[in-house]
Design a protein around this nucleic acid. Structure first.
Lengths: 223, 223
DNA sequence: CGTAGAGTTGATCAAACTCAAGTATGGTGG
DNA sequence: CCACCATACTTGAGTTTGATCAACTCTACG
């Protein structure tokens, strides 16, 4: 359960890494590449060690829906441990390092260690709640509301994982990704972000998000 | 585990009723009433015996998002067994009969019967996949695509539960409910349904949905 | 340099919303 | 039994939000 690489990992106490699920195998995936592909019955379980990724469903044409963003410490497809069918892909948004464990090995541990199954259930439940909130804001909110929501949601998740100063956050998303998550076009995302910037609410520059007026963003982007 | 009322229930082999989770207590809820309310820490577990219900999140103003429709045999809030926080309400769409079990009793059985926890995990995973598909069609699809998707999705679920003849389905939803599930206005739902009717694809009359051209609906409403 | 990718900005367009007035239906009380 | 009302649905006219199309800038990189 101890692990040479994980031993020095800054995320060792975060997410699934904290539960000692990981084996010692790793894989590097370049920005823009798929980590797992849709409809591919997975024999492996992945935990994200470094970098960001996005889970998405592809439609018949070029449209795609980003279902959620994955940060270091997140398990890529916890549902793969419960059901065989994985119906979404995972895309590396930055260069990424993932920890690879065999599904069979994790499944075997399930039998003996009930708390482990409980952890997975809780994680899937949290994913469900997150997805419901995203659905709600996408279905009910304007473009401004959706974008404010996403910015706040991500800043919150980053804050839980690392120390944040002066409301400045590591933020590798392209406007294209924001658009794919919220059901908007990149062009319109650009316009809304420009207007938030002009109002002095926030800015994204060179991969860094800076929140300048959280209160106004929350007024727009909360339920 | 045997149960006087459940013994004659037409849904006894369907959903959670088939797993003998239920106790002998029941509750009747009238159409339009809430079965459970948001942010109310539930000490009870409900299984829907009869009628339809809808799970929804309410926003600050009058907007609401329907997260999913519940049919006989469905457990109202399986996530309530995993985490304490329930953040959505359940509304009775018809007069409804629910089976009430104490959460503590079910939790105790979890300890001893691992398969039961597995059933719940699978059910939550399925809910997650369903929600992801809804999110995808709501974010990426036109009003016609969304409505065709929902009609097909519901007809499929009904078919799994009961014998269906001539593509006629019990369908108690109001246009308002379709609108709340898909992020549309009732007015626009009315227009789209009228156009589907005019094209001879489907009709809803007096609580009965009739699908007249499934192929065309699938062309529009599938991924 | 030259090219590709990301973002910006303007002009035009279409899908869906809003507002409003109407019909059809069922239930209720006189 | 009928008059009245509330609720669901329909339909029309005008408006708004966000999409589409296109041109342009900026940066990184070979």
């Amino acid at each position: 359960m101890s692990n040479a690489l994980c031993g020095t990992c800054p995320n060792r106490d975060v997410g699934f890494c904290a539960h000692g699920i990981a084996e010692r195998r790793f894989r590097i995936v370049r920005r823009g590449q798929l980590i797992t592909a849709q409809n591919e019955p997975s024999q492996e379980v992945f935990v994200l060690c470094e970098g960001w990724a996005a889970q998405f469903m592809a439609l018949a044409d070029t449209r795609r829906q980003i279902l959620g963003f994955l940060l270091p410490g997140d398990m890529l497809t916890p549902t793969g441990l419960v059901s065989d069918r994985i119906d979404c892909s995972v895309l590396a948004l930055t260069d990424v390092q993932v920890n690879v464990s065999s599904r069979a090995a994790v499944a075997t541990r399930f039998e003996r260690e009930a708390w482990l199954q409980r952890i997975i259930s809780e994680s899937i439940t949290e994913k469900l709640n997150e997805t419901r909130r995203l659905l709600t804001i996408v279905a009910q909110g304007s473009a401004e509301e959706r974008i404010a929501f996403l910015i706040l949601h991500l800043s919150h998740r980053i804050k839980r994982r690392s120390v944040v100063r002066e409301e400045r956050y590591f933020f590798p998303l392209l406007q294209q990704h924001i658009a794919d998550a919220l059901g908007l076009t990149p062009v319109h995302v650009s316009r809304v972000l420009a207007s938030f910037r002009a109002r002095g609410w926030m800015q994204i520059y060179d991969g860094v998000l800076q929140i300048l007026n959280r209160q106004e963003l929350e007024r727009i982007g909360s339920f």
